[in-house]
């Protein structure tokens, strides 16, 4: 195994992710865990495990990203997930384009430039039903396991229109549809359509530059992939480990900062 040359930590709202890369930018180790309330301790433990497993030295540069990034003190730098996702997906897919990341708290659409930088981005409105949490909540309310959401939506015969933009209203609308005997799969398809509609508005806002890429845990949802593909008029491109892209981008940035390639000035605390 090659030596660890950069570490990225993505302390997200639902999961904590860690990626270690070698000098060539290839992933040599990674970890995904449910986010711990004491994220600092969790990251310390993950780093210890990494050192034990991959023999990473103490001086390896590291970058933290995600909502908990400020809590992770023992890193070289902290960078937002927008920059990290752009960088991670660019490193994984090797192409500029428009990147969609549907997260638990935030959804973002990022235009990735020719050098992997975020050129422009938009994020969901606070009150809009445009996040992964929207799907999660509804899935649990309907008693559908999260990983069955996509297949059941895609397999549906029809599609119910869910036109509420507010999560509370949407739930109320769904209960009515069920009461009227609508098929569960059709409701789920409508629900996905509603989410993608919101995302689509953001995609148009930053401009669709092909390919349309998708990262984040929701990328595993087949209905999200298909409906986004319909929107783009071609299949969406998904990296191998969509959930790791934030941490991967952070690791790449760590690696580059050690090589003096990353120009951004270090943040002052």
């Amino acid at each position: 195994m090659s030596a660890v040359a950069g570490i990225g930590i993505d302390a997200g709202s639902t999961t904590t992710k860690l990626v270690a890369v070698d000098g060539g930018g290839a992933i040599v180790a990674h970890a995904i865990e449910a986010a711990h309330p004491r994220v600092e301790d969790q990251v310390a433990r993950l780093l210890d495990e990494l050192r034990a497993r991959a023999g990473a030295g103490v001086g390896v540069p590291s970058v933290a990203t995600g909502y908990g990034r400020k809590l992770v003190k023992e890193v070289t730098r902290q960078v937002t997930e927008i920059t990290c996702h752009a960088r991670g997906v660019f490193a994984a897919l090797g192409t500029p384009g428009t990147l969609v990341d549907i997260g638990g708290q935030d959804s973002k659409v990022i235009r990735v430039g020719a050098d992997g930088r975020a050129v422009d981005f938009l994020m969901n409105d606070k009150c809009a039903a445009g996040t992964g949490r929207f799907l999660e909540n509804t899935a649990s309310r309907l008693g559908v396991p999260l990983d069955e959401l996509g297949p059941r939506a895609i397999g549906a015969r029809g599609e119910e229109a869910i036109s509420s933009t507010c999560t509370v209203f949407a739930e109320s609308e769904i209960i009515s549809l069920i009461a009227h005997g609508a098929e569960l799969g059709s409701i789920l398809k409508g629900l996905h359509r509603s989410l993608i509609g919101r995302i689509g508005a953001m995609v148009r806002g930053v401009g669709l530059e092909r390919p349309l890429m998708l990262s984040g845990g929701v990328a595993r949802n087949v209905a999200v992939r298909e409906l986004l593909g319909e929107l783009a008029g071609e299949p969406v491109v998904v990296p191998e480990d969509p959930q790791l892209m934030g941490a991967y981008g952070a690791a790449i940035l760590a690696l580059e900062s050690s090589e003096g390639r990353f120009q951004a000035p270090t943040r002052r605390e």
Binding site: S163, S164, F169, S172, S176, A179
Partner: peptide
């Protein structure tokens, strides 16, 4: 309160 939808929400009922 309502949004413009084609199905009346259960909450409203």
């Amino acid at each position: 309160e309502h949004e413009l939808v084609s199905t009346l929400g259960q909450q409203a009922v």
